[in-house]
């Protein structure tokens, strides 16, 4: 359980998308999130759909995992569609559904908005599916690097993120241990009214916090003993490097962008 959590959604595979520099991926996805809103006709939507599906295919991640990432939002996508279907009043009345008139414009708009939603979720989930959290952390550190000029603690933020990543599984294991210990003393987490269940969590949280603080203190001391004195003058083992592959990807993405602006009306 813990191991699936640390990697989050990351699905290891040997694909070009996995190998892309995380900064390239973040920048492209960030741009995609913006340009999705520029699609305004069937061609431009089709264009973006083709792009998104090809990108997803390139990751070599099994569709099963892709759909798992979409699971929590299916409901929202369908809901958005239905909302538009009943609320929008444009075009001709096609039919009546449950006593409501359904307009042709509503059908089109509902479809567009849910498709946009679907593409957004799909493409953003490609980042976490193909990039390890630590890569994302490294990318954020380098991308935010310019903010150092305005005294934004970039290095500290990245260090905090990587230490959290490091300790999530440890704390998960500990939570499991404590909850078993408390359950063996008769604390019931699973049944009963909500209020009682919330109260049952207290004896779980208190020891967990106590131990987390102790860990933090010891870790800080160990880091100091190992010569840590802030980001100044540090070198890095993990290096990000933009290579030919990344330039090709960025080039292709620019083609997608130009195509989109050509196709939209």
């Amino acid at each position: 359980m813990a191991s699936s959590l640390i990697i989050g959604q990351y699905v290891p595979a040997d694909s070009v998308v996995h190998k892309l520099d995380p900064r390239t991926k973040i920048m492209m996805i960030f741009t995609f999130v913006i340009i999705v809103f520029f699609a305004n006709n069937a061609y431009s939507y089709l264009w973006l759909t083709v792009f998104s599906l090809s990108a997803a295919a390139l990751t070599k991640v099994k569709p099963r995992f892709l759909l798992k990432g979409l699971k929590p939002v299916w409901f929202l996508i369908v809901f958005t569609f239905l909302l538009h279907l009943f609320v929008t009043r444009e075009g001709d009345v096609l039919t009546t559904l449950l006593g409501f008139p359904v307009y042709s414009g509503a059908l089109i708009q509902g479809f567009q908005i849910s498709l946009r939603f679907f593409l957004l979720i799909l493409v953003t989930s490609l980042l976490t599916l193909t990039t390890t959290p630590i890569e994302i952390t490294d990318a954020i550190e380098t991308l935010l690097h310019p903010l150092k000029k305005i005294k934004f603690p970039v290095h500290e933020l990245a260090l905090m993120m990587s230490i959290s990543l490091r300790f999530i599984p440890t704390l998960m294991q500990e939570t499991e241990k404590i909850s078993k210990a408390q359950a063996s003393r008769g604390v019931d987490f699973k049944t009963g009214p909500l209020k009682e269940r919330i109260q049952a969590v207290v004896p779980l949280l208190v020891p967990l916090f106590v131990s987390a603080f102790k860990r933090a203190e010891e870790l800080a001391m160990a880091m100091e003993a190992r010569g840590y004195r802030g980001g100044e003058g540090r070198t890095r083992l993990r290096e990000l490097e933009i290579v030919a592959r990344d330039y090709v990807a960025i080039g292709l993405f620019l083609v997608v962008m130009v195509g989109l602006f050509y196709l939209r009306t």
Partner: peptide
Amino acid sequence: NQFVGTTVRDDVAFGLEN
């Protein structure tokens, strides 16, 4: 409580990076 890196390699590197 003295393992700083997310992997073995990163952890050994920590003191060197510092």
